[in-house]
């Protein structure tokens, strides 16, 4: 297999891992292995992967409450992600963070966020530091269309453009914020057009087409690395599942034909059909990938289940110092 085809195979596999992750996590939650809030990234896989394929290990990524896919795309250890969601000491955040707070600073993964839009100004800060230190790093800040309506987003984008900071504002417009469809919250449904107001580059991208996601992000990331300033990319995509484990809002605002249209434009479907069409992979070879994915996920789940809980004693000792008054 050529290097290029090998990469395509890997890309498909990574998206399939993201998808399978969300499928099994719901079962694990129902079985009591995973606590707390769980927001699934199903259907948005191409956005995170398309961006992160253009990043170096030490580039910064800021994630959201819906961050499992971002973490997998940035190369965080699958086993440790499962362990984190299970509240285990071997988790990426030592069991202190959970689903919404995956961190891995060694890989520039600066955390999910329980506050919608909470990461946007913070990401502007690492970009500022990169300019300051001239370290050549780029910051990517993921957020969705709901977050774009927090004032923070406007403040951050204005500063980033003003100071030509190396940051990509990666807006995954999945058409929903909790139970509310975006047509009820966006005066202009094209978020990328806001960039104009900040004299910043703004582009839209088919967020369900991996090749386009890779291409559009590459251009923006290259620009940022050359010191030419930020870009706002709006990925047009669709939140396939309900908002989270407890809020099941799939019965409302989901016309059948719209759901069917998006199912037909599913990122994994689109990409795998293209690979077959172009002779990169056969259907049988894709079935082999599915088996690999299944095995890797099972192994990672087992790792998470076997891992120990964080030590209560160490925690109590640490907080008595850290939060002393």
């Amino acid at each position: 297999m050529s290097k290029k085809n090998e990469q395509c195979r890997q890309n498909l596999k990574t998206m399939m891992i993201m998808r399978e992750f969300e499928r099994v996590i719901k079962d694990l939650a129902n079985e009591g292995f995973v606590d707390g809030a769980v927001h699934c990234y199903t259907g948005e896989e191409a956005c995170a992967l398309g961006v992160c394929l253009n990043l170096n290990d030490d580039d910064y990524v800021f994630s959201t409450h819906r961050g499992h896919g971002h973490a997998i795309a940035k190369g965080l250890d699958l086993k440790k992600i499962f362990a984190e969601l299970m509240g285990k000491a071997s988790g990426v955040s030592g069991g202190y963070g959970g689903s919404m707070h995956l961190f891995d600073t060694k890989l520039g993964f600066m955390g999910g966020n329980g506050i919608v839009g909470g990461g946007v100004t913070v990401a502007t800060g690492t970009a500022y530091a990169s300019k300051y230190l001239n370290d050549g790093k780029v910051t990517v800040c993921f957020f969705s269309e709901g977050a774009s309506n927090e004032g923070w987003c406007h403040e951050a984008m204005n500063m980033a453009s003003l100071w030509k900071l190396p940051i990509i504002f990666a807006c995954e417009n999945n058409l929903f914020a909790a139970t509310t469809p975006s047509y009820k919250t966006l005066a202009n449904p094209d978020i990328f057009e806001r960039a104009k107001a900040y004299d910043m580059v703004g582009v839209k991208c088919d967020g369900n087409d991996l090749d386009e996601c890779i291409k559009v992000s590459k251009k923006a990331i290259d620009r940022a690395r050359r010191g030419e300033g930020p870009t706002l990319i709006e990925f047009k995509t669709y939140r396939v599942e309900g908002h989270c484990r407890v809020i099941r809002d799939l019965e409302i605002f989901r016309p059948k034909d719209v759901v069917a249209w998006w199912a037909d434009h599913d990122p994994i479907k689109v990409y795998s059909e293209r690979l077959v069409e172009n002779g990169v992979l056969t259907k049988d070879e894709i079935a082999v990938i599915a088996k690999e994915v299944d095995a890797e996920i099972k192994e990672a789940i087992q790792f998470g289940k076997d891992a120990p809980r964080p030590s209560t004693e160490e925690f109590l000792k640490k907080i008595s110092e850290r939060y002393a008054i």
Partner: peptide
């Protein structure tokens, strides 16, 4: 007095 950790035992 602490920020709330995720893991159940903590």
């Amino acid at each position: 007095r602490t920020a709330m950790p995720f893991s159940a035992n903590l």
